[in-house]
Computed example of a mutant assay.
Amino acid sequence: MNYQFDFHFLNGTLGPLWQGLKVTLQLALAANLMGLVLGFLLCLLTLNRWRLVRLPAQLFIEFFRCTPVLLQIVWFFYCVPMLFNVFVDPITMGVLALGLNLTAFNAEAYRAGVQAVPREHLDASVALGLGPLNRTLYVVLPQALRSALPVLMTNGIGILQQSALVAIVAVADLMYIGKSIATEAYRPLETYSLIALIYFALSLPIAQLVRLVERRQDAALER
C-alpha cells in the first residue's frame, strides 16, 4: 500500500466541520427529546384497553421499526411536500423523521419498563386516592424511566449515528460537510477517518454511561 495519509489539508476546513457538527448535534438532541416524550405517550396508547386506540399505535411502531431509516428520511423530505403541500426547513424535517423513528423504538423500551412496575405499587397508588394522571406521572413514569434508561440511552446513540443519513437529502450536517470536503480535496480516507473519530468521540461517553447505569441497576437488584 503506497497511499500516504496527509491531514494538513483539513486545517482550513475546521470552520465548516464545526458548523456541520452543530447541525448534527441539533438533529440528535431534538430527535432524542421528541423520542423521549412521544415515546412514553405512544407506549401508553399501546397499553390502552380500547382496541381502536391500541391498534393505530401498534401499527405506527411496527411501520417505523420495520422500514429502513433512510427510506423514512427520503419519504419525509420528498413525499410529504408532494402529498400534503407542506414545506418546512430541512433541519425541522430531519428532526421529524428521526424523532418519529426514535419514538417507535423508545415506546417499546417504555412498554417493557411499564410492565415491570409492580402491581402492588399501582394498587397502593389507587388506595391513596391518586387519579389516573397522577398515577402515571408519579408512580408509573419514574419507575418505567429507570428500568428503560439503558435502552433509551442506547437508542439515543443510535439516532446520533443515523442522523448522518440526512446527508443524502443535502442537509448540511457533519456527514454532508465531510462528503463535500472529501470530494473537493480528493482525500476521502483522511476526511472520513476524521468524521468517524468525531462520531466515536460523541458516542463513547454515552456508551460508557450506559454501562455504568446497567451496573448500578444490576447491583440494586442483587440487594
Rank of each mutant, 00 (worst) to 15 (best):
L145N: 03
L96T: 06
L102P: 01
E214V: 14
V95I: 15
E190Y: 05
V140R: 07
L55F: 13
L202E: 04
L174F: 01
T136S: 15
N11G: 08
H121W: 13
Q72P: 02
Q208S: 09
F5G: 11
L128D: 07
A107N: 05
V151K: 00
L122C: 04
Y78M: 13
I198M: 09
E222A: 14
L149N: 03
V210E: 10
V171F: 00
G15I: 11
T13A: 06
A207T: 11
V86Q: 06
T92P: 04
Y186Q: 02
E214Q: 13
N32A: 08
K22A: 12
W50S: 15
F87P: 04
P90R: 10
L204C: 13
L17T: 02
Y176E: 05
M153L: 14
E222F: 09
H8R: 13
S147P: 09
Q217K: 06
N48R: 11
S203K: 15
A97F: 02
E108Y: 04
L83P: 11
L42H: 00
L38N: 01
A196P: 12
A172L: 05
V169I: 14
Q58C: 14
Y186T: 09
I198E: 08
R65I: 12
L70H: 01
A127M: 10
G129K: 11
A107M: 12
S163T: 06
R119D: 15
M82R: 09
C66K: 03
L122R: 07
A107C: 07
P16A: 06
I206D: 11
F200R: 11
R187Q: 12
I195T: 09
C66N: 13
K179M: 02
Y186K: 05
L197Q: 08
E222Y: 09
R65C: 07
F63K: 05
F9T: 04
W18V: 10
F84L: 10
L204H: 12
R146Q: 12
A170M: 07
M93L: 11
Q143G: 15
T154M: 14
M82Y: 04
V139Y: 06
T136W: 11
Y199W: 08
C66S: 06
V139M: 14
L165F: 03
P205H: 10
F63A: 07
A127N: 08
I177D: 01
E184W: 04
M175G: 08
E108R: 02
L209I: 06
L14F: 07
L160R: 01
N2F: 06
L42D: 02
H121A: 11
S163Y: 01
R65K: 05
N134Y: 00
V88H: 01
L42M: 03
L204Y: 13
V74S: 10
W18S: 15
W75Y: 07
Y3G: 07
S125M: 10
V166A: 04
V86A: 03
P188C: 10
V210L: 11
M93V: 13
L174R: 07
G131L: 08
